[in-house]
Design a protein around this nucleic acid. Structure first.
Lengths: 195, 195, 195, 195
DNA sequence: CATGAATGAGCATTCATTCAT
DNA sequence: GATGAATGAATGCTCATTCAT
């Protein structure tokens, strides 16, 4: 019984939550279903998480957190801001296409009326936004992007565009590649913000 | 308590639903609250609407429907597709800024996990999408927009961009004008899709 | 506008109630359905009847009342108590077979847990019971029936028997004649109570 | 408030349901009342039973089921069909007199307009009917009962008679013994069906 | 007399969370 | 730590009845 074992059910729970949230949405995802999916008792979930809301937040933290870490790792080896933008769009779409359940949860619950969830998710999302905005400012410094543009607004266009493309795909028959939308999307955006 | 005989309380109910949905989100908007807001009895709502879900759908139909009608009217007098895009973005943002409660509902519930609502809303949204796509194709015919671009993808960028800008504003302190974001957003988009 | 017209919707209402009660049972027979069946407004029913319960009672009074009146008329011309018993059983079964909707209501609601209905129905039923018991006592005086038998108990056997036969028929496919059960039933009963 | 861990509260729930159903009838027996009577929470009932209807059916199964089992045990040691009929009538009346609450429920709900309940109860009732009919056919084989009589019809007379006697008692002041009605009832019936 | 829109108390059922084991 | 039976507050919807017209 190593100490690490104590907490090793959390990933299982989060994974189960992802599957169930993706399938039913937050409100129709009952703790009983998630517990069953995880192969554990309902009460056990509450040893790792304070509430259903926190479970959703933890899921975001876990998934988006690791995505951001990997993304930053990749961006570090890219100098050109234009290439960085390409990387961001590609990785974002690839991640969702790879994990359609995550995609469903992300597109469904990104804009939660539920304040607790919204506020729990916000910091993670903000982190991602800052990465994008940072890249944009870098591009402006490099002289690639129009320096008069607001980095925040550009980020909104980029994130909004990716998001809409992803949402359409999630609700579609998925008979086309999500990734393949990245390049034409990128072209429009780059052209739109180039000096 | 006063028994009114107006015979059409639907607009009152929809207006009340908008206020309550905006404030609490769909799931925490109880029929009792909506009825109270409308100044009528709970049962009365069910004389006009089959269910809470239908109420949400009716709200969309009503609000987005009239927006679309007015928008189409305006577009008819505009020849240049670029000016049409400007009009769409401006009207969209203006509408939401004018009616912040509608804005909240729209940004909250646009992507519903609830299948009934999602499917009820879909046709109205699709109508709006087609207007945008139609304008894009017009611009391509007019030689203003890159004819190799997919009109659907361009629409996703435009709608996604508007949407993200609006969402940020809804969740913000609203200490800035939403409308004012239209012009710089438009500039990027037009530049991005120009031949 | 003759004075009699004032009350002429009651039979229509009662007839409609019979149809609906037969189809759905008392609790699932909504006033709205009955009103629709009667071709009148819901509120109109309350001009003739104080409550849904009273409607049920009125239905019993009306139907069983006229049945009893006709029965008594016939019994008056029959001297032999055995023939009277035959007449009662035959008429009872014939009435239900003639009017299957009445049969359903009668067999469903005869034993109501609802106190108001039960007490409203009781006097009518008691009247019928007394006719049967009177016939039995007559038969005992005529020397046909065992004088040591309790007339009340014999009535219970007769009414219970008829009732069970009728109930089975109501719940069956009705691919056999209810009336035809009268004669063999009668034979058993008469044999059972003969001196 | 005390959290019990008996793991099988079904008998407690059924017993409580019997009391409440007897007192108020099915429709006016609210789950809250039954839960209170059982000393448990409302939700707990639904851990054992799917719906209020099922609760009624389970009550029948439980009570009539055990009655039938005991009855069959007794009948096995009786050879003469006439004595078997006596046994059936006596046991039936004794059971209801012993447990007046069961008697009320039985007499109230035996003929349910509610289809779900009616169909749920039917198989159990049918089982009882077959026992009676089987005894009648035995008596016909033994030469005691008129072989030209339909066993089904005889059963209807017997069950109908018992039922009416029981119903009267249930609705009466109960100032007389129900059991005591068995012997005179039996005498009439036996006489009525004897060869 | 007739109407039918409006009322609002009423209720079965659900489900996140707890806690004795 | 793990369990899952028990809890009970919470809520959408129904429908008998009323009453302004």
């Amino acid at each position: 019984m190593t100490r690490q074992r104590e907490k090793d059910k959390l990933p299982i729970i989060i994974e189960a939550a992802k599957v169930i949230f993706a399938c039913y949405g937050f409100h129709d995802s009952h703790i009983a279903k998630i517990a069953k999916q995880a192969g554990i008792a309902e009460g056990t979930i509450y040893l790792y998480v304070r509430s259903k809301e926190e479970l959703m937040i933890r899921l975001f933290e876990h998934q988006v957190g690791s995505f951001i870490a990997a993304l930053q790792e990749q961006l570090r080896s890219i100098d050109d801001a234009r290439a960085q933008i390409r990387c961001i769009i590609q990785q974002h779409l690839a991640k969702l296409e790879e994990d359609p359940e995550l995609a469903r949860v992300f597109q469904f619950e990104l804009r939660q009326p539920n304040l607790t969830i919204r506020e729990g998710i916000a910091p993670i999302l903000r982190q991602y936004f800052q990465i994008i905005e940072h890249t944009i400012r870098l591009g402006q410094q490099q002289g690639h992007f129009d320096p008069t543009l607001s980095a925040v607004l550009v980020r909104k266009l980029i994130f909004g565009g990716i998001n809409e493309v992803a949402t359409s795909w999630v609700f579609s028959q998925k008979d086309y590649s999500l990734r393949s939308q990245g390049e034409p999307l990128l072209r429009m955006i780059l052209k739109g913000i180039t000096t």
